[in-house]
């Protein structure tokens, strides 16, 4: 199973975990399985038609999935996915 790193803003939606193990052979499958297991995640990162919001970046082993094969990018057993929305904070 691949490891998915969860950004701080989504951690409550996965029970506080910083990373979760998710099965799936492509980015699409991994995200679908993640959102099945944790529907609150899906509500935040997926649009009404089930595609990924433009403000969410996904990286596979450090590379931007959009520049690979996007949601078709293959995901191996030991791969690491990072879900990354931008953060605004500068702690004013």
């Amino acid at each position: 199973m691949s490891t998915v790193k969860i950004p701080p803003v989504l951690r409550q939606s996965v029970g506080g975990e910083r990373e979760v193990d998710v099965s799936g052979a492509t980015v699409e499958e991994v995200l679908a399985n993640l959102c099945d297991a944790h529907p609150a995640v899906g509500a935040q990162i997926l649009t009404a038609d089930g595609s990924l919001h433009a403000f969410v970046n996904v990286y596979v082993n450090g590379e931007d999935a959009r520049l690979l094969q996007w949601t078709d990018t293959p995901v191996g057993e030991t791969d690491t996915l990072v879900i990354l929305p931008a953060m605004a904070g500068g702690a004013q």
Binding site: L10, F55, V56, A86, A88, G90, Q92
Partner: peptide, 15 residues
């Protein structure tokens, strides 16, 4: 890097 910002509930401030 970030073509567009997340909606406010996904982008809370440190405050």
């Amino acid at each position: 890097l970030f073509p567009e910002p997340p909606p406010p509930d996904l982008a809370p401030s440190c405050g």
